[in-house]
């Protein structure tokens, strides 16, 4: 059974590797201090591994696909690399211990959470200068941005809130209390909802973008897994808005959620301590970083099956994919 599906998968993967969809998958290895690069044209094999600095975690690619940004947490800076050559370009002033970052949809600004200072830092990507620091709750972590770029969402892990920040005024416009240790905030493509994971609370809150009210709270139950081990972290919602994928940390599974009913449709077994997720540009595949098994699982989005796993560096944490 498993073999069959793998063979089928291999076929799919081979098919997908047409030049039109050539892209790279960048994985930050928290313990390895490097970034592993997978190439979609080479059956997602590892084509390069390059050193980036100490304890790389949050990672993102610019909307135009040219730049890779990596939070090197223990170096207290964000580093920029060329996605073509993997060469170091410059450092950006993030403030201490940057963990997660997000780039504005137009690619002009970068937002990073500084856990030690209770601040969100706004960086102008043209000049590389720090534009503003916005005070938020204790231990800011997750960063999301609305598709129109107008609203930035930050989650604070000890305050347990999602803070909504207006891009222009740089003021907080709303604070929404969610469950313990909110880790990640993800807008739906149509901008209607923000999904916020709570690692310790074990839930995902779906917040209505207009009213800032929690429309629904998703919880998870997996037979044989104790509830404390179900720790939602990374979230991705498909562009068509029909399915959401939620990484459940030490539960070693990714939950597939129907965005209409908010019901969990499936739990996909991946590697150990699954942390962050990213789609391929064509949304055919979802990549998961599995921190304890040191690999990336590739999930086929149409069938919701894990089709391949690729060994990367030590303790993979974040993942970012170049756009088409």
């Amino acid at each position: 059974m498993r073999r069959l599906s793998l063979a089928a998968l291999a076929a799919t993967l081979a098919l997908s590797a047409s030049p039109a969809y050539a892209y790279k998958v960048f994985v930050s290895n928290e313990k390895g201090n490097d970034v592993t690069v997978l190439d979609s044209e080479k059956d997602f094999s590892v084509v390069d591994t390059f050193k980036v600095g100490q304890r790389p975690r949050g990672i993102a690619v610019s909307p135009d696909g040219t730049s890779l940004y990596v939070c090197t947490s223990d170096d207290d800076i964000i580093k920029e690399f060329d996605t073509e050559t993997h060469a170091f370009v410059r450092t950006l002033p993030s403030g201490p211990d940057p963990e997660l970052l997000v780039v504005s949809p137009s690619g002009d600004q970068l937002y990073a959470a500084n856990e030690d200072d209770n601040l969100v830092t706004v960086i102008d990507l043209k000049s590389g200068a720090r534009l503003a620091e916005i005070p938020v709750g204790v231990e800011p972590e997750g960063m999301g941005v609305s598709p129109d770029g107008q609203t930035i969402v930050n989650t604070s892990e000890t305050t347990n809130m999602a803070h909504f920040i207006d891009r222009d005024s740089q003021q907080i416009t709303a604070n929404v209390l969610v469950d313990s240790r909110p880790r990640f905030a993800q807008y739906k493509k149509d901008g209607s909802e923000i999904w916020v994971s709570a690692e310790i609370g074990g839930t995902v809150s779906v917040i209505d973008a207009a009213t800032k009210e929690i429309k629904h709270k998703i919880s998870f139950e997996i037979p044989g897994i104790r509830s404390e081990a179900i720790q939602p972290v990374g979230i991705r919602v498909t562009d068509d808005g029909t399915k959401a994928y939620i990484a459940l940390g030490p539960a070693n599974r990714v939950a597939v959620v129907d965005t209409d009913t908010y019901e969990v449709a499936d739990y996909l077994l991946v590697g150990q301590r699954v942390w962050q997720l990213a789609f391929s540009p064509d949304q055919k595949y979802l990549f998961t970083t599995n921190g304890l098994s040191n690999d990336v699982t590739i999930i086929d989005v149409a069938s919701d099956r894990a089709v391949k796993s690729v060994q990367v560096g030590q303790q993979p944490w974040g993942v970012a994919v170049t756009p088409e």
Binding site: A174, N175, V176, I207, T211, K212, E213
Partner: peptide
């Protein structure tokens, strides 16, 4: 700070309207 509170607890209804 305009506070928009999530209707989580017992007082959900009150807070919902207060938030509006």
């Amino acid at each position: 700070v305009p506070l928009v509170l999530a209707p989580l607890m017992i007082s959900a209804a009150t807070l919902g309207s207060a938030a509006q």
